[in-house]
Every structure is written in C-alpha cells, then in structure tokens.
Simulated assay, not measured.
Amino acid sequence: MVVLTVRDGRDDLGTTVTSFMSVSLDPPMVVASVATSSYLSEVLNRRPRWAATILSSPQRALAGRFAAEGRPGARILLAAEPHHRGPHSDALILETGISAVECETRQTMEAGDHTLFVAEVLTTDYITSERTPLVRVNRRYLPV
C-alpha cells in the first residue's frame, strides 16, 4: 500500500492508494490510481509533482487514517510520524516506509471511476530492505 501526498498551496493532501505500480524502467515511471470524483484527483490534475511512500506492515493504522472519509489534512495525519518535505515535489514524505519516491505526472487517463496518473520518478528518497511491505488483497491485509 502507498500513501500518496501532494502540496496544494498552503494545504497538504494525502490518501491511501492500493493500485500503484512500476510501468517503465527507462525512464523510471509509475502509475497511481485515484478515484476521479475525489478532491485529490482534482488537485493532482493541477499539481503535477507529488510523492508516494510505500508503507511497511506495521503502518496498517496509518493506511487506515489516510483512507478514512472526512480525514484531516496530511500534515495533521503525519504530525506524530517522522516525515519531511520532498525537495522536488514539496510533498510530505513519511520516513518509516519501505521506500519513497517523488514523481511528476506525464499522462492521465480515465479508467472507469478512477483516473490513472502516469508519472516519471524524479528521485527515490530512500529504500530499505529491513521492513516488510503492507499488502492488501480482497479487502484484507495480508499477514506479516
């Protein structure tokens, strides 16, 4: 699972994304699927630079907070978590995941009730092999 964050002026937005994958090695590109009707989708269409943190298995509660309806802004959700602002995206990046990337959207496409944001990876903020990824399949988290 991934927490996708974007800075929109003075506000920081974020959501849990379950559909996130690599689509190209040269150049390095990823795709994130976001509900088209969401405010985040609207912001991502205006702000092409964003960050994605791949969550580790102990971060299940954090994934739930970022997925909740009516959730507060990303700054509030990350207030008790180690994080920093990405130098390329200006988005908030969680420091305790598996990895984090900063991206720039190159293409968008509608896919049912979601929009696919195809983005070039500008930089990899960090990678660790010391943690197990948080995976959700069929509406359930896989055991650690």
Rank of each mutant, 00 (worst) to 15 (best):
A63H: 09
A74L: 04
V23D: 04
T128A: 06
R106N: 09
E120Y: 07
V118E: 00
R65E: 15
L78H: 08
V135P: 02
Y39H: 14
I76E: 15
T15Q: 14
D12T: 03
T123P: 01
F117P: 02
I127G: 04
A63V: 09
T108D: 07
G14Q: 06
S22W: 08
M29G: 01
G14T: 05
P48K: 11
A35R: 10
H88P: 00
N138C: 14
I127W: 08
R49Y: 03
S56C: 03
G9Y: 00
H84Y: 14
D12V: 02
I93C: 07
P27C: 13
R10S: 02
H83A: 09
R140S: 15
L62N: 02
L13T: 02
L55N: 06
A79V: 14
L77T: 07
G97K: 03
T128S: 13
P82L: 08
H114Y: 11
S37H: 09
T132N: 12
G86S: 13
A91N: 07
P72T: 09
R71T: 06
S89G: 09
P27R: 13
F117S: 03
L116R: 04
H84W: 12
G97Q: 02
G9P: 03
V101H: 00
T96S: 15
S89I: 02
S33E: 09
R136Q: 15
E102P: 05
E81R: 12
Y141P: 06
L134P: 03
R71L: 08
T108F: 05
D113T: 12
V137L: 14
R60F: 00
S57I: 03
G112H: 09
L116H: 04
L62S: 02
S24G: 12
A80D: 15
T128Q: 06
Q107M: 13
A52M: 11
D125Q: 10
T128W: 05
N45C: 07
F66A: 08
M109I: 11
D26Q: 15
R71W: 04
T96G: 07
R49A: 01
D11E: 12
I76R: 13
R136L: 15
D26K: 13
V30F: 01
E95G: 10
H114G: 09
T36E: 10
H88F: 13
G64H: 14
G14F: 04
S38L: 08
R75W: 07
G86W: 01
G97I: 01
S38A: 08
